[in-house]
Amino acid sequence: MLRPSAFEYHKPETLDQALALLAEFGDEGRPLAGGQSLVPMMNLRLARPQHLVDINDLGLEAIERDGPILRIGALVRHERYLTDPLIGALMPVFQEGVHYIGHPTIRRHGSIGGSLAHADPTAELPLLAVLYDAQIVVRSVNGERRVAAAAFFHGAYMTAIDPGEMIVAVEFPIPQTAAAGAFIEVGERRGDFALAAVAVQLAIDGGRIGTASVACSGAAQHAIRLPELERALIGKPLGEPAPENEIARIAGALKPPGDHAASADYRRALLKTLLTRATATACARAREIS
């Protein structure tokens, strides 16, 4: 049948009410956002929360610029980014990545808070959060804390969120200098979770790479940065081809998981290819705008 086991449904009208409910239920409660990951798990009875706290009506749906920060409310739906002018102008790589998320109906309902909290190993938004050094704003009745994306993901479907907490927003530092980047992913079919994906963001410093940010999924149980490659890229002329040997060496040292969808060897090779291509594309785009 694939139907959920019984639970109690709560629909708070304010954030405080929601936090109070989550505090009360602890382990047995869960926020319900778009439901695009949680409800399948419940129907399969892989998740059995006793209490669902519906957080859809808490007004967490703004995309706002706050000085050097772009603040995205936890309930912003994926499809918004595709047409949002701020995202389009400031973070085109973000937009490029979002195109790979699922299908139109899923994108219409799935939320960033849900995606980060669900923490699928190869989901796009976690990868983007890691790429951009986003801060995840987590709140409970005891107050608010910010967790850096790099420290947020603990494993497949595991995060730094404690029972009673929920994500209220995700803060992305807005690239301050001219920047360019690329997001490339390979999945079996369009809309599938990636076998591997790579995102690159380069700050342009004259005709050279200023700072570099390189993140990938498929290399571990969650998205990771490749600081060694980032260091290797800094200072390189934009016209120079991607450092293939360096990339090959760094990719070669990765220990991606192997499973029925893809072997570890394949994922490693794929990461090498995607790193090379994403770097090259990012450089080419950087040349166009500098």
Binding site: L44, R190, H260
Partner: peptide
């Protein structure tokens, strides 16, 4: 599940 048993979707 259909997350693992992959049938052709229209774009392919």
């Amino acid at each position: 599940t259909f997350a693992d048993y992959l049938m052709p979707l229209a774009p392919e």
